[in-house]
């Protein structure tokens, strides 16, 4: 279980002010859970993810994975980034295998496992391609496979679909859900799209800015309906889906989070 207790992140700006990026946030992510952090820009959702990943130190509070405190980045928390962070000098296959290489897994074994992961994300025929030969959606799929390669305890996704066009985005949402159903990883997924949050999350936490804190939590079963075979379009047009969407939209707008 991932537990975040009273996580607070303050940092100083150049002109001497203090930004309360994250204020007293507590959150648990249990086995098999897909938690979505939702909010407008500047609400601290990325800070929350960066703190869990270990990139940003906490000013106060604690984060632990299965009881082990987080003190820095580590392979137990896989990260999928918003921008493309693939190594431009390595092929898709070697990018996926990179984490295994760092762990000292032998060449043949890591290539075999990377090839298997590429197959899972539908890129088995692009193993030798360089990142700049792939489209934005394909690069994010390689990034996803790379994060899965080291078999992390939790997958942290920081607006991974933010830079994609809407058609690719929908395909990617379904791919992520199929992978999640298959690997049963715990997921924290950051987004500013309300519809994406409801479609993907078993649990949705809404954050509001200045200071960044959690203002509401929702449980959602729409993702299970999709995984049980209901078409995505039908899930997204169900009255309960639309009602929840409007409820969250009102909450975010009312909170003055949208500028």
């Amino acid at each position: 279980m991932l537990s975040v207790r009273h996580a607070t992140v303050h940092y100083e700006t150049d002109d001497g002010g203090t930004v309360h990026a994250l204020e007293d946030v507590s959150l648990d992510i249990d086995d098999g859970e897909f938690v979505v952090g939702l909010g407008a820009s500047g609400c601290g959702k990325s800070t929350l993810l960066n703190a869990i990943a270990g990139f940003v130190p906490l000013t106060a509070g604690a984060i632990a994975v299965d009881g082990v405190p987080v003190i820095g980045p580590g392979a137990d928390r896989g990260v999928v980034f918003q921008q493309d962070t693939l190594l431009p000098w390595a092929s898709a296959l070697d990018n996926v295998a990179f984490g295994l290489k760092l762990q000292g897994v032998g060449r043949a074994e890591r290539r075999r496992r990377a090839q298997e992961l590429l197959r899972l994300v539908g890129l088995e025929s692009f193993a030798r391609a360089a990142p700049w030969q792939l489209s934005g959606g394909m690069r994010q799929r390689v990034g996803l496979a790379r994060a899965l390669a080291t078999d992390p305890k939790i997958l942290l996704m920081d607006e991974p679909l933010g830079a994609l066009d809407s058609l690719t985005r929908e395909t990617m949402q379904e791919l992520i859900l199929r992978l999640w159903a298959r690997t049963r990883k715990r997921v924290l997924f950051i987004t500013h799209s309300i519809e994406e949050a409801i479609f993907l999350g078993t649990s949705i936490v809404v954050l509001s800015p200045r200071p960044g804190r959690i203002v509401a939590r929702f449980q959602s079963d729409h993702v299970r309906r999709f995984l049980q075979g209901e078409p995505a379009a039908s899930v997204k047009s169900a009255p309960a889906f639309i009602a929840l969407r409007e409820q969250i939209r009102a909450l975010i707008h009312h909170g003055g989070a949208y500028v």
Binding site: F81, Q83, T85, L87, K101, L102, R146
Partner: peptide, 21 residues
Amino acid sequence: PIERVHAAQSLGATARQVFLH
């Protein structure tokens, strides 16, 4: 790019591996 360093660290890279790779 700092994200590239972060990506390697979250795959378990040590300081030496970050430098080399």
